[in-house]
Nucleic acid binder design. Sequence first.
DNA 1: TATTGTTATACTCTATAACTATA
DNA 2: TATAGTTATAGAGTATAACAATA
Lengths: 161, 161
Amino acid sequence: MTAMAPARTEPDLSFLLDHAGHVLRTRMAAALAEIGLTARMHCVLVHAQEEERTQIQLAEIGDMDKTTMVVTVDALEKAGLAERRPSTTDRRARIIAVTEKGAEIARKSQEIVDGVHRATLDALPEDEREVLLRAMNRLVTGHLATPVEAPKAVRRARQSG
Amino acid sequence: MTAMAPARTEPDLSFLLDHAGHVLRTRMAAALAEIGLTARMHCVLVHAQEEERTQIQLAEIGDMDKTTMVVTVDALEKAGLAERRPSTTDRRARIIAVTEKGAEIARKSQEIVDGVHRATLDALPEDEREVLLRAMNRLVTGHLATPVEAPKAVRRARQSG
DNA sequence: TATTGTTATACTCTATAACTATA
DNA sequence: TATAGTTATAGAGTATAACAATA
């Protein structure tokens, strides 16, 4: 399932954001899948290309857990799009290096992402488009900048053996 | 984690919608949790109150699976906010009846939901607020109305015994 | 002691499959 | 045959715990 549809008295911003976000995500996933990428792989590829970055740095940029990052980099390596290289300054850390093939795919995936965004924004009249972006930016940097902490569940130690 | 942050060339609508949606959801969840509700429980409660509705009908409204509905109604019954009653016209179906306590809670939860939405919209200048809602409505009823089908995974039969 | 990256795995969430009662 | 509701559970996704190597 996707979103709730609570009864509305005030305009139902929850529904609008959830539904639009969900549909856009499925579109993006479908479009990127055509070149064998997930949104996360695209994200890592692009930011790894910009400058030398470690897995932790890339995880922070993409707002992922470091363990999720491991899986994502595994996928990129397996597809021959990126490689782990030891950092020259910190022997614990791995720099994610984008291969030639990876750079080529990153170019294509960025085009795909831009295309999906463009198509969506083009569905709006120009004046609405501009204001929508301004308003969303204002929310994301202001009132809706930081999530409320979820109370974290306790977790048993993992079985040894 | 929550959303991807792909590099931007076109304005990154994915990030804006994901991030804003995610933060608003955590706020809503935290606010409703104070009276012991989830967003789904609120949704079911409100729509069950409007008229006599079966679980399937409520599931459709809230865009949930019928099995998710079972869990949600279980929670509402356990909290004494709603009851399953046999339909008078279809002996297979159950009408979800809101109790007196449930009606009281529904009133409060609707206030909470409205309050969270209001606070968010109030963070915007009035002209942006109006256009944002118009644009989002346009997307949700138009270009972003329907999700792309995800290729469904095969599923083994469940173990008997 | 703290951090990077890794493995193993616990937990959550959701939906599929199978079933009962009824239409 | 088809549908409403239920139970059991498969599977995806994600994050916590523990660990090895290094800072």
